[in-house]
């Protein structure tokens, strides 16, 4: 993947968090040496185990966390050394859809207001009437008919999936260049989800929006994304073209993931999930998947495998390759 065409990318990023209490303080390495790039008009799906660091990636890319090591680049310039004017442009251009639709909307404000305000604040429209009109159009586009009624509601008057769609409409409002969508359709039934994915596909193609699409639904990842990156225990273990990852997965974890989908042929080939996040200490060595891997070799316990290129657009971090 060439970094020139990347709008937003992270390069060799690691991030540590402090956890535990007094006597038992410890450091958790949420991400270890992760590089990702988001390109014009392309969607990168990020999949992986719960707790593997997906939301952390999105938060880093949106500037909510500072990397412990490595840097984030917006249009080629490191965010570490940005000037405030450019930071404002970056903030507007990069929109985040948070994972939890129950805490990401302001409970006291009407839905309409929460979409109109960013429209006005960012100069997308210059008067209240246009803002109201534009907000109604956005609500219709995410399937919240009738838009007038929805706009008058407060978040608690909406169902989980309806709130998720408000969050999507709000992110679209400011005409962003990059959307970081953290499980944006997790509470939508399939028929509504397809409608939303089609809308996002159109925006990607027509307006060239770059997407980070975090999901645990591999079929949605394949439907929407051009590339898929697989995280395990804070490390990127496999990345490539969506077709390559879903049709020809190579990493033992990716295979486990695909085999575990209900109906996708039974008997996942490894031990079931046990306590998550093994080896998250900063000084851990070896492959993060070694404890559950059915094919582990002796060196897997000792050395973190390097990211190796299997094909043009297919890379993997595993000693078997």
């Amino acid at each position: 993947m060439t970094s020139e065409s990347a709008l937003l990318r992270m390069e060799n990023v690691s991030l540590d968090f402090k956890t535990g209490t007094w006597g038992r303080r410890s450091v958790l390495r949420a991400l270890r040496d992760v590089s990702l790039s988001l390109r014009l008009g392309k969607a990168l799906a990020l999949v992986g185990e719960s707790g593997s660091g997906k939301s952390t990636c999105a938060r880093l890319l949106s500037g909510l966390h500072q990397p412990t090591a490595g840097d984030i680049y917006w249009r080629g310039a490191g965010l570490g050394q940005r000037k405030s004017k450019e930071t404002a442009a970056y903030r507007r251009s990069v929109q985040m859809i948070f994972q939890d639709p129950f805490s990401s909307l302001n409970p006291a404000l009407s839905i309409g207001y929460q979409i109109e305000r960013p429209l006005l604040a960012n100069g997308v429209v210059d008067n209240a009437a246009d803002a109201a009109r534009q907000a109604r159009i956005l609500l219709e586009r995410v399937g919240l008919h009738p838009a007038d009624e929805t706009a008058a509601k407060r978040p608690h008057e909406l169902s989980g999936g309806q709130r998720q769609r408000v969050a999507i409409a709000r992110a679209l409002a400011v005409k962003p260049e990059v959307i970081l969508a953290d499980e944006p359709t997790s509470m939508l039934d399939v028929s509504v989800r397809i409608g939303i994915l089609n809308l996002l596909l159109d925006l990607k193609q027509e307006q060239g929006i770059a997407f980070l699409f975090i999901t645990h639904d591999l079929a949605s990842a394949r439907y929407f994304a051009d590339d898929i990156a697989v995280l395990y225990g804070g490390s990127l273990v496999e990345q490539g073209d969506s077709e390559a990852i879903t049709q020809n997965p190579q990493h033992p974890y990716t295979r486990l993931l695909l085999n575990s989908i209900p109906g996708a042929g039974d008997n996942p080939s490894t031990a079931p999930a046990q306590t998550d996040a093994p080896m998250r200490q900063p000084d851990a060595k070896g492959c993060p998947f070694v404890h559950r891997c059915p094919q582990a070799l002796a060196e897997c316990r000792e050395v973190m495998p390097a990211l190796r290129q299997l094909a043009d657009n297919h890379a993997i971090r595993c000693h078997l390759y």
């Binding site: 992986g48 185990e49 509470m187 645990h216 486990l256 993931l257 575990s260 209900p262 999930a273 998550d276």
Partner: peptide
């Protein structure tokens, strides 16, 4: 919707 944020392996 208890498992909306869980990957299939953990979910299962």
């Amino acid at each position: 919707e208890p498992t909306t944020a869980l990957d299939v392996v953990v979910q299962r």
